[in-house]
Design a protein around this nucleic acid. Structure first.
Lengths: 319, 319
DNA sequence: AGAACTTACGATGTACGTAACGATT
DNA sequence: AATCGTTACGTACATCGTAAGTTCT
């Protein structure tokens, strides 16, 4: 039994049982992968894969029983390397973060700036995705950290720590009816919004859940004419007069977004909590703690370590 | 990085930093071990050992940080092999149990007999030791299971499940003063016992703690003339009239121990709970579950799995 | 002098990629 | 016909044990 065999096994599952894909992912030859898998099965004395002729279709029962152990083994192998790198050169390395557009565009920049200044030797990779993609990337070890408002708390193998809380705002073009009434002291209602065509995030993104909940609870039928992944797109169409925007408060900047007016909507939609997610059981290098604390000052190293040590489901979810 | 390097690293710690010992334990040559360790250090880019010249003295900080990850990695490697063996031939294998003399001699035999009859293809190794030795053997993976009354609950990496409860009995030779008074209806007291020379288990064994506690609480000074690891030795000296024995109730057998009289002492000493210990995180082969249930029928597979899944300290300690 | 680790060397075995082959859709 | 996995083969590299060497007790 060796690491290459185990990596091949795990990657075969991840690649959906396509050995050619496995070979590419592991930078090796396809016959090599074929051999690794055969050797592993021979050594364990068990068929791990369901085959149809020569095709691989899925895992057998023993294969399913094996997978979690192999995952943990390879996770610890990664941790061993990280411990080495961390002590060998604490201030040098790679920090990979997956975030939603909203976070990458509005929340992370200041933290990234400060972090890069303080840790110039750490190169930073930022990848963008949906909350579920982010969760998958943290789980697979592709990235060290995930930042999103949705979904992250739903995975038992992730530790999701609250970073900050925010509410929605409604954005309209200057001179829009809602802007005038707001200026006149009218307190915005869901009924007001339901009367207009709306533009907001796609379902599953950036607090969209709370928006739908609010309308549903009020028995109102909101009409979304456009749904986007990010506030920039939303604002663009709001400017064009297509509809009324509902975006995260952090995504509105008075000076940059001139021509638009933001109307506070915290009384209409539930408050959202943006979280940072870490894979349970992974060793975090020193600068990962540093970055998290730069982003969310309450998340000091001891706080994070305590959360990592706690059992799944035990998580303190308050801010 | 490979398994041999990691095994060498772990074994070096276990062997107290004697590379010659490591080589013997791993069935390899000493220069080989030396190389493995050097290669591991080189690959990680960190010194793992504190050296005085050529001598190994201990772990450096990186070494200490590394150890738990290596331990878990190798544990999972063992689990992978077990999953294979379990599915390849569920009814064939080796079951190793560490137990105290009391358990091995009095509690285990009937379970062992039934188990061997039901699983003839499983060979069984029973090793004897003190409760702390047993705990260490389970922790190191030398044995699958530990059975003892003491100490097992004190290790966070062990899951200690209650099997049965028992109390102490006092044993004396037939015709002894205490036997006569017992037959006459006198209820035995600690004062009675303190007046006689006592023979019992060594400290740390088989409920001895509860014996000392009882005397201390009553403000009495018990006089132990002989301390042994097992009830057989104790009974032998009781027969010789050296003193009054205090042993586990399970260790007395009316038919076998003729010439001796047992006097119930459950009102004098606290009840003891014998436990079976498993290493947290280890995969248990099917027949291990079967054995545990044979020994303690309440410990069914789901019960054991639930306990293994629970966090350290959460354990339900009641019977 | 002896115990303990390191270095050097040679033989064996292992691992991997290329190329050809077979099966499936 | 194309995709996907297996088999065959040769080279290169890695591993391991023996033996000699060095340092410290």
């Amino acid at each position: 039994m060796n690491f290459q065999q185990l990596r091949s096994f795990r990657e075969t599952v991840r690649q959906g049982f396509n050995l050619t894909g496995v070979a590419e992912a592991l930078n090796t030859s396809q016959p090599g992968v074929s051999r690794q898998l055969k050797e592993l099965e021979e050594e364990l004395g068990v068929e791990l894969f369901v085959r149809a002729g020569r095709r691989f279709l899925g895992l057998t029962e023993p294969g399913k029983a094996l997978l979690p152990h192999v995952e943990r083994l390879l996770l610890e192998a990664e941790n061993v390397r990280r411990v080495g790198a961390d002590f060998a050169s604490a201030e040098q390395g790679l920090l990979t973060i997956a975030a939603t557009h909203t976070q990458a565009r509005y929340a992370l920049p200041s933290a990234v700036k400060d972090f890069c200044a303080a840790h110039p030797q750490v190169s930073l990779h930022l990848v963008q995705g949906s909350p579920r993609q982010i969760a998958a990337q943290v789980l697979s070890g592709e990235v060290d950290l995930g930042v999103a408002t949705e979904a992250l708390s739903e995975y038992p193998d992730l530790v999701a720590l609250p970073c900050y809380r925010w509410t929605h705002v409604v954005v309209v073009a200057e001179g829009h009816e809602l802007a005038r009434r707001d200026a006149a002291g009218h307190r915005l209602t869901l009924q007001d919004l339901a009367a207009h065509p709306l533009i907001s995030y796609e379902p599953g993104y950036t607090g969209r859940g709370h928006i739908d909940e609010a309308f549903a609870k009020a028995g109102l039928q909101a009409r979304f004419v456009l749904q986007a992944m990010d506030a920039d797109v939303i604002k663009t169409y709001v400017e064009l007069g297509i509809g009324v925007g509902v975006i995260a408060s952090v995504a509105f900047d008075e000076t940059r977004d001139r021509g638009l007016v933001a109307i506070d909507a915290r009384h209409l939609f539930a408050t959202n909590t943006t979280r940072v997610a870490i894979k349970r059981g992974s060793y975090l290098r020193g600068y990962v703690f540093a970055f998290i604390q730069t982003f969310a000052p309450t998340l000091t190293r001891p706080v994070i370590e305590a959360a990592l040590a706690s059992a799944p489901g035990t998580a303190a979810d308050g801010l």
